[in-house]
Nucleic acid binder design. Structure first.
Lengths: 295, 295
DNA sequence: GCAATAGTGTCTTTTAGACATTATGTG
DNA sequence: CACATAATGTCTAAAAGACACTATTGC
């Protein structure tokens, strides 16, 4: 096969040998990871089940910009490092967690001043872990690492817009970070599209760093959406789980309650019963189940 | 409120004034756009409806690397240009199309050698346009611009994997580009994940540039997925459309057929009847409908 | 025995699929 | 009038929701 030449009469090999990347300025590329888990709240009664809450791991920034603000963990992508590799490396460095489910969320780069230092494009990822065996530890870029409970509730709903409150809380440290989210249905020619506006709640003293409140808001929506039509929830329970535990994960994320019978029917296609039982809970023991791998 | 100082005793303002971006190498960031439409094939019978096909716009590269190969249009993101702005700019430059529905697909950057010239991270986007009033025109980076019909069909299906053929064809230019896709269900600890392998079909002489075959494959999946639970399909029909036209869009993308009654019931929540009718089609005229904007 | 959760059976409602039938234009 | 599509009515099957009821544990 005859090698094709370009307009300068060069073969591909010659072209690449002589290729000099332009000296135009390039953006920095970072990865962000939103690590979610569904955690048990402390038991209030020996025989009652623990309530669950959706939690996200945040770090406290120890340098400018946004010094002292809480932020999503992340870091720069090396020039010779794949994006996923960078995310797993950062996750390991900042939280000592490995082997988790992770998916790409969105790439943020419309606002060229989202980082006041320089142009930064950030590829955000969502990771899901079961709440057992979690020992996050602070890394280089952070004073502290902490789990924050995440709540997103509808506060107003009209024909043209829905208003939510997104509240992040860490009770131990007595921190509450709140944002108001308004999803507006905007006529965009023929098609209506959703435009999201986010601003801090008036009473909320604390703020998240950068545009991280937008990323968290998107992640919650994505999580709620994907749990409905994918088996993503199995990443939030241990290998062996009771159906009630699984139900609590769904209820916690979606903010609704299921009838046990109907929930069991719904997930029955995706689970297989294990031999073991979960005893010692102050009431009838529950069978343990495992995900059967169906999609 | 007392201004916080960092470890060097600097305020945020001082920090930013003195901040020098590191001289580490940065990746180039590009945007790719997969422009899809559902087009009418030529009529074979005056009274029969035109068959439809999913089409994607490709450009023929006129320089190395991949000189002469067909590729997804795209280009570099300027240092002071938002990502969406860059996509709309490129779309306008390369195809003269504006005001289209667009969404981010995925960011490609795991393979650091996906572009042989340098490290390139590419943010791919999917745009949808109705097939009327489309006059793409070649821009600077391309010899030619052409629509290719896109087909993705299951060729084999077992418990552990599904095999597809993705075929891109342009009849006018007599080009057929074919890939074999295998989605494997891989045990990943407890959870099974899907791993996708793609390779050119043996008989396929032509190839797509870079890793663009992977991007197109993902876009088809995303489109098929999202058409099921979002009103995305209305971006592929004109402002006023008949229900059969809408049905054909669904059938073309999903590769299945609907019963008219059931399809009408399914979309009835999302359309409003217009006063106008579509006449002159060789059979009973059809009412025109419009999208009502519900989500 | 009591409280709390585990687990099953079944009725109802809603949604989705199949298919027959009538309507209305063009050539 | 023939043909092809438009549009509606209705029967059936499947999925989702509601709820009553029994089972089993720790204390």
């Amino acid at each position: 096969m005859k090698e094709r030449l370009n307009k300068d009469g060069l073969t591909e090999k010659e072209f690449l040998e002589r290729y000099k990347p332009g000296d135009y300025e390039r953006p920095s590329v970072t990865v962000d990871m939103l690590l979610f888990t569904v955690n048990n709240k402390p038991k209030t009664d020996y025989k009652k089940l623990a309530e669950k809450e959706l939690q996200i791991l945040l770090i406290k920034r120890k340098d400018h910009p946004y010094l002292g603000h809480w932020a999503i963990p992340g870091g720069f992508v090396d020039i010779d490092e794949g994006i996923s590799t960078a995310v797993y490396r950062e996750l390991k460095e900042e939280t000592n967690i490995e082997n988790v489910y992770m998916e790409q969320l969105c790439t943020w780069g419309d606002d060229v001043k989202r980082d006041p230092r320089m142009r930064v494009i950030s590829v955000s990822h969502m990771a899901l872990v079961p709440s057992d065996n979690l020992k996050p530890q602070a890394g280089d870029d952070a004073d502290e690492v902490a789990w924050f409970s995440v709540k997103k509730n509808v506060t107003k709903s009209t024909e043209t817009e829905i208003e939510y409150e997104v509240i992040l809380t860490n009770e131990e440290k007595d921190i509450t970070i709140g944002y108001k989210v308004i999803d507006k249905f905007v006529k965009n020619g023929v098609i209506k599209t959703i435009e999201t506006e986010i601003e801090p709640l008036l009473w909320s003293k604390d703020r998240l760093a950068f545009d991280h409140y937008k990323i968290i808001n998107l992640a919650i929506d994505r999580l709620r959406n994907k749990i409905e039509y994918t088996p993503i929830a199995f990443n939030l329970v241990p290998e062996k789980f009771t159906l009630t535990q699984l139900q609590q994960v769904y209820e916690t994320i979606l903010g609704i309650e299921f009838t046990p019978t109907n929930f069991r029917r719904k997930v029955s296609k995706y689970v297989i019963k294990d031999d073991e039982m979960l005893t010692g809970a102050g009431h009838r023991p529950a069978s343990l189940f495992r995900y059967n791998g169906c999609i």
